[in-house]
Design a protein around this nucleic acid. Structure first.
Length: 492
RNA sequence: GAGUGCGUAGCUCAGCUGGUAGAGCACCUGACUUUUAAUCAGGUGGCCCUGGGUUCGAAUCCCAGCGCGCUCACCA
């Protein structure tokens, strides 16, 4: 970046001069390796009982980034991944070499320090330096440490600066990693197999969403970045795998806001001889396990709302929620025309050719979602908005599907998977019709997938979990950009 | 995509109804073997986001653009 060369011009010049001086002293300011013997945390544990104003005889090596220099270098705070270590250097009894190095240090430098463990009069556990080794000379100044970095643009574009100056940013990213590990462990323990399926799709399918399109040169063929892994994971079930899951990125070419990033992390799970009720239980296990693992409790608070992730979650049919919040018994409506008239009366906008199912979904979104704060499985969706879902065993207008809502956000989407190839072909044909009519989010016909079903797929339960939103809930963050290390940004 | 707010030193922010740029931290010089956002004295540092316009004069007012936030639309 030519940008960085202009940044902090004056302060950069000062640091370059110090770097030059190090070179003249025969010091490599970016050495190959340094191996500390202790961390901030290990020192704190080992010397917990060391009394104030006490010097040990223990020589240790620590390393970290300089965050503060006080009293002309007498006290230096360095931070490693476990916390702070104070470095103490007395000018009175230090070598010429050490004092010279002291002069060349700046806030932001990464150094290694070999010295003796002591606790100062004021009670700060410290390393009394004998030798300071430059491990990485920083040429640019860090943001001010008291306020930290607050400019959102810089936080997202230069996340490392955000991490260095705002510990909660790092904590959130660590939690993110732990949540995913906890879920992965749970699923592996249940005997599921973690698999990988293509990100480059020849046919867009598995979700109603606008895709990113890219091009393969050698094949001279357009490809879609996947909007969902669903259709490939099901092929693995057809092939005989008992249960599979994939945690990975989906790409959807849609708007960016506090809950949407163009690439986001989705987890999908498929298990033979399960239906959607089994998937509800699995959702509860996943949420509870992740919460307990990273927070030690199933209680969370987000946006001032207290939420309990302890299962079982309430199950509510979409129809019953509509009845409660909109006062309409949608199941008694017989025709598309009547459904559109009801929407009109409720002030819910729908397309002129919207069918009964689309109307029902629209009313649910407008009138019900906003009330779903505590975890709720919304079950039994209309068929026409669910092209990959098995028909409901009690009502052919509905499907065996649920979406789990928390804090009004859709967290999960799950079905008794559609396995009937004849039915699946018809559903695809309806999607193609919608697509031809201008709905570029509708699915394409996937002949190869229908062929797979024609070979026979066992009854299967499937579940998709929006991992980013789960992480938002578990870390009490209201913006997806705060739980993704590098959110998508406009080119500067 | 629409509405709206913001953009001033490396960072965090002031800057009134227009009069030619400020603070704290950081940086430099010095003091103090003391600290915990160390302190004290002095100093350096600015394409006031970009481009137009109004005006004797614009960081300030107007228009357009760029970037970011928020809300809405689309969606998970």
């Amino acid at each position: 970046m030519t940008d960085s060369q202009n940044l902090g011009h004056e302060q950069r010049q000062v640091r370059l001069a110090k770097l030059k001086k190090l070179e003249e002293m025969g010091i490599n300011a970016y050495p190959q390796i340094y191996r500390p013997t202790e961390t901030s945390a290990s020192l704190a544990t080992k010397y917990e009982t060391l009394a104030n104003d006490t010097v040990t005889e223990d020589v240790v090596k620590v390393a970290g980034r300089i965050r503060a220099i006080r009293n002309s270098g007498m006290f230096i705070d360095i931070y490693d991944s476990t916390g702070k270590v104070q470095i103490y250097t007395s000018k009175n009894d230090s070598s010429e070499e050490l004092l010279q190095m002291l002069d060349l240090l700046d806030i932001g430098d990464i150094i290694g320090v070999e010295g003796i463990v002591k606790r100062t009069k004021r009670g700060e556990l410290s390393v009394s330096s004998m030798k300071i080794t430059m491990l990485a000379k920083a040429l640019l100044p860090l943001p001010e440490k008291f306020h930290g970095l607050t400019d959102t643009d810089t936080k997202y574009r230069q996340r490392y600066l955000d991490m260095i100056t705002n510990p909660e940013t790092t904590e959130t990213l660590i939690k993110r990693s732990k949540i995913i590990t906890a879920i992965r462990t749970l699923l592996l323990d249940q005997g599921l197999l973690e698999v990988e399926t293509p990100l480059l799709h020849v046919i867009k399918g598995g979700a109603t969403a606008k895709p990113f399109i890219t091009h393969h040169n050698a094949l001279d063929m357009d490809l879609f970045l996947r909007v969902a892994p669903e259709l490939y994971l099901k092929r693995l079930i057809v092939g005989g795998m008992e249960g599979v899951f994939e945690i990975g990125r989906n790409f959807r070419n849609e708007g960016i806001d506090t809950r949407h990033n163009p690439e986001f992390t989705m987890m999908e799970i498929y298990r033979q001889y399960n239906d959607y009720t089994d998937m509800m239980t699995l959702v509860e296990q996943i949420f509870e396990t992740a919460a307990l693992k990273v927070n030690g409790t199933t209680d969370v608070e987000i946006d001032g709302k207290k939420i309990s992730l302890k299962g079982p979650f309430q199950r509510r049919t979409m129809a019953s929620l509509i009845e409660e919040y909109a006062g309409v018994d949608f199941l008694s409506i017989q025709s598309d025309e009547e459904a559109r008239a009801v929407c009109d009366k409720l002030g819910v906008p729908v397309a002129d050719d919207a069918d009964w199912g689309h109307c029902m979904a629209a009313v649910f979104e407008e009138k019900c979602e906003q009330h779903l704060i505590q975890p709720t499985h919304v079950i039994d969706h209309p068929k026409s908005i669910s092209p990959l879902t098995k028909e409901h065993r009690d009502d052919p207008r509905l499907v065996e599907r649920f979406e789990t809502f928390v804090n009004t956000w859709e967290m999960c989407n799950a079905y008794s998977e559609l396995t009937n190839p004849i039915d699946q072909r018809e559903r695809f044909e309806e999607q193609v019709k919608a697509r031809d009519a201008g709905d570029d989010e509708a699915d394409m016909m996937d002949e190869d997938f229908v062929t797979a079903l024609e070979h026979g797929m066992a009854p299967t339960g499937g579940l998709g979990v929006g991992i980013d939103r789960l992480i938002m809930i578990l870390t009490s963050n209201l913006s997806i950009r705060d739980i993704i290390a590098f959110p998508t940004m406009r080119k500067k």
